[in-house]
């Protein structure tokens, strides 16, 4: 290898460097969220179904009272192993506007599997009015839409401190959170030990609920992730073997030139 090659490899690494390093400089005001152990990490990662089910319970009973999830349909829950009957039952708890009917009137009907998750508020203004002026963001893509992804969501859910550190003055209606940018968050601590009852008997501690709901939210952000990784492993294995063959062929063809 010539010096040129080596130097270029180093240069390319440095070029890609700022992409990784760049954003962390912005987030310096809040500490780096610690890395958790996620079932969906790694080359063969999948969504832990039991955890995602519990996470759905947390979302349903706690998060969904303020946060919308407009990109996910009830029918999508089948991916997590919910049965058609369960999905219908979950959907029917919500009401959506439909119509016009034959008389030309709009009417309300129970939601169906094909409907998107029913939002808690009709629009952003209503949401702000009910939430002290703050707007709880849509959660469909939340693990992709925040730096740090799932680790960040877990960190914020578990990062509340009852008393702010000395010298920090909280605005009225705000809460102190170690991992939220600026540390002042309008969302009251959403989780408390025993806030939900898990059907499978798992103890509903704050960290357990945070872990489970984050797993569920990672699924809503990218429901096709398992399909992507499964296909990716096959494609890359094929390419590695095929490229090896191409290299052997290249050596063979070129042997009379050198």
């Amino acid at each position: 290898m010539s010096m040129f090659v080596r130097a270029f490899v180093v240069a390319t690494a440095v070029v890609l460097g700022p992409v990784v390093i760049g954003p962390t400089a912005h987030a310096s005001e809040a500490p780096q969220p610690p890395a958790q152990n996620w079932s969906f990490d790694g080359f063969f990662g999948t969504f832990d179904r039991a955890s995602a089910h519990r996470g759905f319970t947390v979302y349903k009973q706690i998060c969904s009272s303020c946060h919308a999830m407009e990109l996910v349909a009830y029918r999508n829950l089948a991916d997590l192993g919910f049965s058609a009957e369960q999905i219908t039952a979950i959907a029917e708890a919500g009401e959506v506007e439909d119509g016009p009917n034959d008389e030309g009137d709009m009417f309300m009907r129970p939601a169906m599997a094909a409907d998107r998750f029913v939002s808690p508020f009709p629009n952003e203004q209503a949401s702000r009015a009910a939430n002290n002026g703050a707007y709880p963001p849509d959660l469909s893509l939340i693990t992709k839409a925040r730096l740090g992804g799932a680790n960040y969501i877990y960190a914020v859910l578990t990062g509340y401190k009852e008393e702010p550190p000395h010298g920090v003055e909280l605005m009225p209606g705000m809460y102190y959170n170690e991992y939220f940018a600026g540390h002042q968050i309008a969302m009251a601590p959403p989780l408390a030990d025993g806030a939900v009852d898990f059907e499978d008997g798992t103890e509903a501690t704050v960290s357990q609920m945070a872990h489970d709901v984050t797993t569920f939210l990672a699924w809503t952000a990218e429901p096709r992730m398992e399909e992507r990784k499964r296909l990716g492993v096959k494609v890359l294995l094929f390419l590695i073997v095929f490229t090896g063959l191409l290299y052997a062929l290249k050596r063979k063809i070129w042997q009379d030139v050198h």
Partner: peptide, 24 residues
């Protein structure tokens, strides 16, 4: 055949890197 095979091998390496990001 000299540069078609060399380019084909290079394409293989390129696809491994590119699809590595696409899938993972």
């Amino acid at each position: 055949p000299y540069y078609t095979i060399k380019d084909a091998f290079g394409l293989g390496v390129f696809l491994i890197a590119y699809l590595g990001f696409v899938f993972f």
